[in-house]
Write a protein that binds this DNA or RNA. Structure first.
Length: 428
DNA sequence: CGGTTTTGACCTGCGC
DNA sequence: GCGCAGGTCAAAACCG
């Protein structure tokens, strides 16, 4: 118990030091990603360093401050490694989505070739998607390459918006799966096949830029979702049927970035905000923006695959993404508009209550701006850290193998005898 | 002073 | 063609 208090104090000191930075957002980002990955490591290592300094002088090898400095250097290295691992995980997830879409496309093409008459039995909206299996979707928030291996060879194509008189504004319309070079080539083959099929069906049909949107419905006590990007408000309008005005924002992080979003409060429940994203960033994203980018990218992938296969078309279904906040699953709804298909992710519906897939009765309130999401570091406050210490401490204590592994890792990490560590880390 | 917000006017698409 | 609603523009105001 005393050790636990000690750890908390250390965290407070550590937090004070690391948060004293001009660029709060960037610092938060760095701190959060490392914290979640390294909660155990940082906490325990810091505890060790202090304990070492309290030992008799003859047991201390060298200057304690130098030791602390060395430990911090190693800690930074571990943080970097964790960031690399996180990047690799993101890459794997993205490629998984790519493969999934390829499979769906292949199945769809096979279905088309075997029974072309099926098209005529589809509803009007469905056929629209059948004709354009790969929506030239304006991918929301492209995901920057977190690692050198994460090569994003954008083979997107620019299409003038359907309204060509609209001041000639162009949007970079890209296929969603842009992250894998092989996938791009493969995608290109499929695209060409599909396009040739379309041309056979209707030579006069034009490839229009379908404006896909991702709408997120979530609870928040903030009027603006903190998603890591900088937005500039360019308009406000009161929509029909909702006395709450709808605000229009444009991304101000890049020069002429086409990404826009709308934020509107639900007038029936003013804690609910509906944020609609549209467009594709033409600049690098800060780390704080990547979780939302990944989430919406997953949603758009789902939109793509669903519209491709017509599975659950127009229906609601469970949307879950590795980028979704922990313990939260959205109810996804399609709005199959031919000009602007929208997928709405509703995080306000208590998933565990409506769907008996989970016994988890944790609060369904998903408090945007994603306070509970590790990708939004500005929301990681001291209380959360301290709570995490409790959770982690309990987890370590309950799991002897984890404890042993940690000691082993720490001994190699700090060159401290685990047997000595054992005396210092008696958590609870 | 530069960036952001506000707000009325304007543009565009759509239904009748 | 007209009216309506959603979306955007741009000048003025505001702010740090």
């Amino acid at each position: 118990m005393e050790e636990n208090i000690e750890i908390k104090k250390l965290l407070e000191v550590d937090e004070k030091q690391t948060y004293d930075h001009n660029n709060i957002d960037l610092q938060n980002t760095k701190e959060t990603s490392s914290f979640h990955n390294n909660t155990l490591g940082s906490t325990l290592v810091l505890s060790l360093s202090l304990n070492n300094t309290t030992q008799p002088p003859h047991q201390i090898q060298g200057n304690p401050q130098i030791q602390i400095g060395n430990i911090r250097v190693k800690l930074d290295e571990a943080k970097k490694e964790n960031e690399n691992l996180r990047s690799m995980l993101n890459l794997v997830n993205e490629r998984c989505n790519v493969l999934q879409n390829h499979l769906l496309l292949a199945m769809h093409m096979h279905q088309l070739s075997s029974s072309p008459q099926n098209n005529h039995n589809m509803p009007k909206g469905s056929r629209q998607d059948e004709e354009e299996p790969i929506l030239p979707t304006r991918q929301f928030l492209n995901i920057d390459e977190p690692s050198p291996s994460y090569s994003s060879k954008k083979e997107g194509f620019s299409l003038v918006e359907s309204n060509e008189n609209n001041k000639g504004r162009k949007f970079a319309c890209e296929d969603i799966n842009i992250n894998n070079e092989d996938s791009i080539n493969h995608e290109g083959e499929i695209n060409s096949k599909i396009k040739s099929q379309e041309q056979m069906e209707d030579q006069t049909s034009k490839v229009t830029c379908t404006r896909a949107r991702v709408s997120i419905r979530a609870r928040s006590h903030f009027s603006l979702m903190v998603d890591g990007c900088q937005w500039r408000k360019y308009g406000q309008k009161t929509a029909k049927g909702n006395p709450c005005p709808r605000a229009y924002y444009r991304c101000s992080m890049g020069n002429s970035c086409p990404v826009r979003k709308q934020v509107q409060r639900c007038f029936k429940d003013e804690t609910i905000f509906i944020t609609t994203y549209e467009g594709n960033h033409n600049h690098q994203l800060p780390p704080t923006a990547r979780p939302m980018a990944s989430l919406t990218s997953s949603a758009l992938n789902t939109l793509l695959s669903t519209s491709t296969t017509n599975l659950q078309y127009g229906n609601t279904f469970i949307f879950s993404s590795p980028f979704s906040p922990p313990n939260s699953t959205a109810i996804a709804t399609f709005s199959p508009s031919p000009t602007c298909p929208t997928i709405t992710l509703d995080f306000t519906i208590p998933y565990s209550n409506n769907f008996q897939f989970k016994k988890n009765t944790s609060t369904p309130l998903f408090p945007f701006p994603l306070q509970s999401f590790e990708g939004f570091p500005s929301m990681i406050n001291k209380e959360r850290k301290l709570a995490l210490v409790d959770v982690v401490s309990e987890a370590i204590e309950k799991n002897p193998s984890l404890k042993a592994s940690l000691f082993e890792a720490m001994s190699s990490f700090t060159n401290v005898n685990p047997l000595n560590i054992n005396n210092h880390i008696q958590i609870k």
